[in-house]
Design a protein around this nucleic acid. Structure first.
Length: 198
DNA sequence: AACGACTACAACCGCTCTGCC
DNA sequence: GGGCAGAGCGGTTGTAGTCGT
């Protein structure tokens, strides 16, 4: 197709710099965010005098500059948790990251792609399962089905006990909750065990 | 020491969602 | 209701560092 962007659009296109961030860029970005807050990334980028797009600034802040970020050394417990959460949620990295204080979705995604996916493949091979094309979709369906069953069971329970039902999205929504409160882990492990047994 | 293969991770890209006008 | 901009998410790519030969 003839990519005929209107001249207006072409004129407005700005060439942002790409690639690794320099320490000076990090410093400027952090300064502007400290005074303006982490909102309106386009404006932040302009205020900081960075030749970066807002999107790039946001990513840099969230994945690298934000306070309380843990980097590297993912513990066995964290790894186990990632595996279990992934089994339940699939590739919903932001939800998984939300349950691992100090970890970012990008880090978990990278960790999964470089470490855990291989581990899973090895496990599958050990279990004698040479997976056919399309089996991933079947696994997804099975997983979704299991989650649904647990939700149903939980709803039945709640209709009996008048407590709130289990909903994956609600369960992993911690916006109103202290992220360091680990009570949810116990709840989650119970649910995960129920799924594994069903 | 040189070089290619592999790994880990930072950053980019494209898409969707959401809120505002 | 439709269009637009900003924000967020997941997939993918690029590259620096490491390892094996």
């Amino acid at each position: 197709m003839g990519s005929s962007k209107p001249k207006e659009m072409i004129k407005k296109q700005v060439m942002f710099s790409k690639g690794p961030w320099a320490p000076e860029e990090d410093r400027k970005l952090a300064e502007v965010i400290a005074s303006h807050g982490a909102k309106r990334w386009k404006i932040i980028a302009a205020e900081a005098g960075l030749n970066r797009c807002g999107k790039s600034c946001r990513l840099r802040w969230l994945n690298y500059l934000r306070p309380n970020i843990k980097r590297g050394n993912i513990s066995d417990q964290e790894e186990d948790l990632i595996l279990r959460l992934h089994r339940l949620l699939g590739n919903r990295w932001s939800l998984i990251a939300g349950r691992l204080p100090g970890r970012t979705d990008n880090e978990i995604k990278n960790y999964w792609n470089s470490h855990l996916s291989k581990k899973m493949n090895q496990k599958e091979k050990q279990n004698g399962g040479i997976k056919r094309e399309g089996s991933k979709d079947i696994d997804e369906k099975k997983r979704a089905e299991k989650v649904r069953k647990v939700e149903e069971r939980s709803e039945e329970d709640s209709s009996n006990s008048s407590s709130s039902s289990f909903n994956v999205d609600d369960f992993f929504d911690f916006s109103n909750e202290d992220p360091l409160n680990l009570e949810w882990v116990n709840q989650f492990l119970q649910i995960d065990t129920a799924i594994a047994m069903s």
